[in-house]
C-alpha cells in the first residue's frame, strides 16, 4: 500500500500575517494543520493493518521542513517539500496542480489522504481538485474509518446522515477532525526523525517545469481584500441564581413560541 499524506504548515491560532501588496500570506513557521494531523493518524492506522509506505507531501516555505520532520516522527517514512518562489501565492486550483505534479513524480499512490480543510485557507476544496487533476475518485468529509477484512471503509459525514464508502484504489480521501485522534511522537521518535529522508523539490524538479503554470501568476482566482474580524462579548457572564436564569430563559422562549 503506497500512501501519500498531503500536509500543510499553518500559522498558529490567530497568527495569520498577510503581505498587503498582493494579499498572499507570509509564511514563517507554524504548526501542522489539525485536519492533516488526523489524516496522518489515519494513514498510520491503515499502514498498521495493510502494510506499506507513507510519504508526507507538503508545499510551502522552507520553514515547513520542521512540520514535515514532525510527520516523520509520528509515522511517515519519508517527506517531500515542494518549495520554490515560483509556487508562491497558488490558489486551490494551482496548488492541486502542483501537488499532482509531485504525486506523478513520486510514481503515483494507492491512497492519497488530505486534511478536509486548513485553518488558514479554509476552502476545503484542495483534496477534490487534486483528485480531479489526477483523474481518480475522491471521498470527502470522512469522520471515521472502519475495515471490512482488508478493505478500508470511509464513513462520510452527510447532512443528517452518514455514508459508508468502500475504498477503491487509487483514490483521494479528505479526512475530518473526528476521524482519528492525533498522534504524539515519543522523544526517541522525535530525535530519530532527523535521520529519515526528506527531499526538497523546486520548479526544476517538477515533470512540468514551466513556471507560468505555477503560483500566483497561474492562479485563476485572486484575493482582493482581507478583513480582520473583531469579536466583542455582548452577553455578560450569568451571575444570578440558576432558578432566576431558568425563569428568564422560559420567558424568552414563551415570547417566541407563545404560551404553548
Amino acid at each position: 500500500m503506497k500512501i501519500i499524506v498531503c500536509i500543510k504548515q499553518v500559522p498558529p491560532s490567530g497568527g495569520i500575517v498577510v503581505d498587503e501588496t498582493d494579499r498572499v500570506q507570509i509564511r514563517s513557521g507554524g504548526v501542522l494543520n489539525p485536519c492533516d494531523a488526523r489524516a496522518l493518524a489515519v494513514a498510520v492506522m491503515i499502514k498498521k493493518r495493510l502494510g506499506g509506505k507513507i510519504t508526507a507531501l507538503s508545499m510551502g516555505a522552507l520553514s515547513a521542513e520542521s512540520t514535515l520532520r514532525q510527520t516523520l516522527a509520528i509515522g511517515a517514512d519519508e517527506g517531500v517539500l515542494l518549495s520554490d518562489k515560483a509556487f508562491r501565492g497558488a490558489d486551490v486550483c494551482v496548488t492541486a496542480y502542483t501537488l499532482a505534479q509531485a504525486v506523478t513524480k513520486l510514481g503515483g499512490a494507492d491512497l492519497i489522504l488530505c486534511g478536509q480543510q486548513t485553518t488558514d485557507g479554509d476552502t476545503a476544496q484542495t483534496p477534490f481538485s487534486l483528485a480531479a487533476r489526477l483523474n481518480i475518485p475522491a471521498v470527502g468529509f470522512v469522520k471515521a474509518i472502519e475495515f471490512t477484512g482488508e478493505t478500508p471503509i470511509f464513513i462520510q459525514e452527510l447532512s443528517g446522515a452518514s455514508a459508508a464508502v468502500e475504498a477503491r484504489f487509487p483514490m483521494v480521501a479528505a479526512i475530518g477532525l473526528s476521524a482519528a485522534a492525533p498522534l504524539a511522537a515519543s522523544l526517541k521518535e522525535r530525535l530519530d526523525a532527523a535521520k529519515k529522508p526528506l527531499k526538497i523539490w523546486g520548479l526544476s524538479d517538477m515533470p512540468d517545469s514551466d513556471g507560468s503554470n505555477y503560483g500566483l501568476i497561474a492562479s485563476p482566482t485572486r484575493v482582493i481584500k482581507i478583513s480582520r474580524i473583531s469579536t466583542e462579548q455582548k452577553n455578560p457572564p450569568i451571575t444570578e441564581p440558576p432558578a432566576d436564569t431558568a425563569e428568564r430563559i422560559l420567558k424568552a422562549v414563551r415570547a417566541v413560541v407563545g404560551g404553548r
Binding site: V31, S66, A73, A184, A185, S186
Partner: peptide
C-alpha cells in the same frame, strides 16, 4: 542533552513520552 534525559527516564522505569520541537508546536 535530551538523549541523556531519555536514558535517565528509561533507567528509572519510565515508559511513555511525548516530544515536540519548534516554538509554535510546543504551544500545545
Amino acid at each position: 542533552e535530551l538523549c541523556v534525559h531519555a536514558e535517565l527516564f528509561e533507567k528509572i522505569g519510565g515508559a511513555d513520552t511525548w516530544a515536540e520541537t519548534g516554538e509554535d508546536e510546543i504551544q500545545k
